[in-house]
Amino acid sequence: MIGLISYLVFFLSGAMILAIAVLGLNLQWGNTGIFNGGVAAFFGAGAYALIILGGPDRPGELGGFSLSYPLAILGGIIVSGVLALVVGIVTARLRHDYLAIATFGVAIALESLVRNAEYLFGGAKGVRGFQRPLEAAIADPFTYSLMFLGLVIVCLLGVYIGLERLVRSPFGRLLRAIREDETAARALGKSPANVRLQSFVLGAMIMGLAGGLYATFYAFVSPQDIRPILTFQIWAMLIVGGAGNNKGAIIGTLIVWGGWVASGWALAKFAPADWQLYTGTIQYILIGLVIVLTLLARPRGLFPEELTVSTATGPDGPVKPPERGTVSTGGQQS
């Protein structure tokens, strides 16, 4: 029993960290319509910055700042924000798929950088291991994981409440206005570019926080942690949960990540012995099927966006959110 609780505490810590990143993405995509394909970059920036700022000296590599933990995690958030600011300015004119592939490129570039620049970021072997705040003071590992889960939940609630307030504020309405019709928003004297940038940077900082907590959890980060699969996982959580809905984002995380690891567990436990070598492959098939079937059953996610704008809906009830995402250009034929 204690084993099950211990595992659940551990699982929830990981899942809630991912949920924070999903909330950040929900601000960018769900509320503002920014197609960020580089989640892993901002997550990774937070994780690396935390370890480098807060960790001990590594001979021959960047580091040794030994900042206190709160400062280090704040540093991670700021680094992610600054990265997002630069990326946001460079990609200001891009929309939809074009923005997605450009931000995706940023994530690949960051992975390449940390993988190769050993003197800065430790190279492929990653950075550190074993340096968790207060671990020496709290001898019992289970108490420690409970404490850590508490910290993660506090962060998650903080982000959740902050975002809920934000989307209901005039700024939140502005975000959705820009998402729905940029031209109209501009006509009302708003600056869509500026607001989009703000939302992008804020969302990235939230991802940076998630990355920082992730690196705290493992006391380690390597290029393997920020491969494109992470971006895919975070997106799948948001889409399955329901874009535009913060509650959906959190529940989507639990479902996708829970399904991801539970499928592996169930196969190891129940698949015949002869299949054990193939369970990894079968697990991928199950994950793929779960995503496809969930989306077929609930195309707008399990918890679709609640429209917070009370008035000015269409004559027959709430306006269905228009399609967004992929744009098709008119071709270049003349």
Binding site: G3, Y7, D225, L230, G264, A268
Partner: peptide, 25 residues
């Protein structure tokens, strides 16, 4: 021997390890 796939993804590998340690002892 209870075998779990890591998918070469640290998150997945760590979770599998934790499940083996806590649930299968």
């Amino acid at each position: 021997m209870i075998l779990r796939d890591t998918q070469v993804d640290p998150k997945v590998g760590v979770d599998a390890a934790k499940a083996l340690v806590d649930l299968e002892k």
